[in-house]
Simulated assay, not measured.
Amino acid sequence: MGQIEDLRMFVTVVDSGGIARAADVLGIAKSAVSRRLSQLEDRYGMRLIDRQPRTWEVTTAGQELYQRASLMVADAEDLDADFMHAAHSLRGPLRVSVAREFGLSFLKPTLFAFLKAHPQIDMTLDFDDRMADLENENYDLGVRIASDDLDGLVHLPLGVTRHGLFASPGYAAEHGLPETLSDLPKHALLHYGSARRARWEFLREGKTQAVTFQPALNSNNGPFLLDAAAQGLGIIKLPDFMVAEARRAGVVIPVLAQSEMPDFRIQVVYPAGRRINKRMRALIDALQAGCRVLVT
């Protein structure tokens, strides 16, 4: 057996959580997996998995080998997928972490079209606003919205999103609207987050001006906040891609439209050491085409 096959076996053992389950996945005898694992430990001169009658634990050295071997095995599988099927449709796994609200409210048509065009790609999409560790959590790509570049990642631009303040016509009729930034804390403000004292930043003559306030409502769900504003519960700060349809329908109207907020860049990101395979490149191209309207 070659080195890549031995490493693939080791990765399968760790992923499966045991030799017997790995043998089933690989379709070989349990004794063969056990023997090859011992040979791998002999080659490197260290214990990779502590295997006792009531103990099964990957050692520190084994964890390091697993992280590095996972990348090597994935690269080898990508090479096979890219060149063995070069004349055919793209196939293989693709795991992507997507900023939740942007993915669900804007990217769905692009993602659905991509999946229809490449039915043999096994896609895993995680919609989450947390900053996932793309390398250690084995994501191929991430779609992120941030004001600055993220360290250790390659950044490919998709576009820019701008935030604004909005309220329903009913709220404006009942409570009036703020005329200046200093008026904002006098109103019911709906905040994306969980802060007791929230902070919204604005740009004024090239400098940042912050407004701090006690939210009337906190939530980590943008569509819920938009619905709350539509019901007249207060003023929201949300990105343009989330409020575009509600604005066109007259459900919400701009508040302090002359007040400028910092732009946020929408980017495809991946670890700096990651090799781009054809599946990743195809999705990047699709995302960039789908987000052309956001490019400024």
Rank of each mutant, 00 (worst) to 15 (best):
V211H: 04
R8Y: 10
A228F: 08
F127C: 06
H85M: 05
V211A: 00
L104I: 06
A32P: 09
Y139I: 02
H85Q: 07
I266W: 02
H88T: 15
G273Q: 11
A146F: 00
D149Y: 09
R51F: 07
L65S: 07
R54H: 12
R43G: 12
L94P: 04
P239D: 04
Y270Q: 05
T208E: 14
V13T: 07
H88V: 14
Q39I: 13
F102E: 03
K207S: 11
F224M: 08
S105G: 07
A167C: 12
L94Q: 02
E41N: 02
E57K: 12
I266N: 06
T161P: 00
D151Q: 11
S147P: 03
R21N: 03
P262W: 10
H118T: 05
M9S: 03
D133Q: 04
G159Q: 07
L125K: 02
A29W: 09
E260N: 06
K108N: 09
R197A: 07
R274P: 14
I49D: 03
H155F: 08
E260A: 14
E77L: 09
Q231P: 03
D183P: 01
L65W: 00
A173F: 06
I49V: 10
I121H: 00
S97G: 13
D128G: 04
L294H: 11
P119Q: 04
T60L: 11
R43T: 15
H88F: 09
H155A: 15
R47C: 15
W200N: 02
A246V: 11
M46Y: 14
K278H: 12
P93L: 00
Y171Q: 01
I236W: 00
A216K: 10
E174M: 01
M280R: 09
F83V: 11
A20V: 06
V243F: 00
D50F: 12
L189I: 10
G2H: 13
V96Q: 01
D42H: 12
S182I: 11
L184H: 01
K237F: 01
G18A: 10
A257R: 13
A289W: 10
K186V: 02
V160Q: 05
D129P: 12
T60P: 12
R36K: 08
Q267C: 04
R275A: 14
A228P: 05
F202M: 03
T212G: 08
A86H: 05
M242E: 02
W56Q: 09
L111V: 06
E260S: 06
R292K: 15
F102C: 04
M242Q: 05
A282K: 03
A188D: 02
M1P: 15
G290H: 03
R43N: 14
F114M: 11
Q39Y: 13
L71G: 09
L79M: 15
A99S: 10
H187A: 04
A22Q: 01
W56V: 06
